[in-house]
Design a protein around this nucleic acid. Sequence first.
DNA 1: TCAGTAATGAACAGCATTGTTGAGTGGTGA
DNA 2: TCACCACTCAACAATGCTGTTCATTACTGA
Lengths: 234, 234
Amino acid sequence: MPDGTAVLTMRRTRRRQDPERTRVAILEAACTLLAKDGPEGLSVSQVAQLAKVNRGTAYQHFQTREQLLEATTAWVSEKLRRAVFGDAPLSNAVATLGDAQGVAQRMAEFAMENPALGRVWLFELLASSRPASDPFWNQFKTSLERFAASDQAQPGIDVDVHAVIVLIGTLLWPIFVRADSRTAKQRRQLVERFSNEMLRLSLQGTMRPEKFPELDAHLRATRGDRPRRAGTAK
Amino acid sequence: MPDGTAVLTMRRTRRRQDPERTRVAILEAACTLLAKDGPEGLSVSQVAQLAKVNRGTAYQHFQTREQLLEATTAWVSEKLRRAVFGDAPLSNAVATLGDAQGVAQRMAEFAMENPALGRVWLFELLASSRPASDPFWNQFKTSLERFAASDQAQPGIDVDVHAVIVLIGTLLWPIFVRADSRTAKQRRQLVERFSNEMLRLSLQGTMRPEKFPELDAHLRATRGDRPRRAGTAK
DNA sequence: TCAGTAATGAACAGCATTGTTGAGTGGTGA
DNA sequence: TCACCACTCAACAATGCTGTTCATTACTGA
């Protein structure tokens, strides 16, 4: 992707004076490197180099390496949230109600088109001492809770566990299949493959109940044993 | 934390001459730090310090930082594999046949007792350019393929997708719930919670099919459309 | 056209790390 | 008892990064 200043004849371009654009360029570079090296491997020098920005400029926008890191992850989390839940500034109950499937679809598509972002978000989540405090994570879980409470859902879903399974699977699938080195068409197919399996799993599971009568009975017998409080995992 | 030279009372203990034990101590320290900082954040100095070993000793066992990293991740992958699939040196078809549920159970328990190992493995997998080449991953997928091909399984499972979902969910669940700061009893409960939801999901899915007649029909109509070749994701 | 500001470049001290070397110390087995 | 070997310790140059400062350049809006 050519950067904004990219040049008639390659004359020694000087970046246009556009603080916001510069800031984003730095964040994007940081994001790329973050996806490659993880938080501890990020250096301001490398970021500046990749962003084609003077190191001093980077320090002008972000006082310290730590702040750059913080800003980058916040930026990623917000980008992810907007892509999946729309532009509503905070969890808009009305907009996302009953839209569990749409959320899943948008998330799968976004993850496939931006594998680096998902990777960064995950890196941060894993490095964080309190994974359960991430805003995107919480909004996602909320939308899943709404679905689980509706009459469309099977009873007895453990939302915390299920949210982990679905969210992480969706974000990591593009990385496993190396989405970055795929054509647009392939990526579309891979998204559909994932969505299909997710849908199939949601509707049918994996085990034929009639082949596991004792398990099935056990499951129905113990249903509801598990406490329904959502905060258990926190 | 007192360093190795610390002093009269603790007489300057010198590590027993036991290369293998020392090697493992270093690997274990590397593993801990790897889980905390990721591959790019690992320094030989820190590893040696944590392992209570002289930095020179570390360099005696591993010529370079890169080799230490390599050795550590290989060690982790093998440990994971043995914990889940037993001590058979290579994929023993007989031993693991039809044991999908046992594999899932062992993996969930191991992950809960060793969240750091799962984290390291995942870090490496994400950093790797070819995730699909990891031995543990492949053995896991093979065992899932066997199950999917059996008559106990629902037809139409997309093994590649499903393997990602299950494996990653199992490894990350302990991290989300901060297994390291839980009591043994809590950890046991958390494993069971995960296993129960997984079982429930496998037997029942999440959506009540009768509430989604059109989706259900679509699914049954297109069943088999997807190519069954296992290598699609590679 | 001009002042304000965004961006550049270069230098700096301070620090941590890497990988290497050489001299020492002590446990262990033959 | 003795020699080998694992381990320790201290020093080394080289490298790269951090955060700061200051002088300089060039874009931009008024």
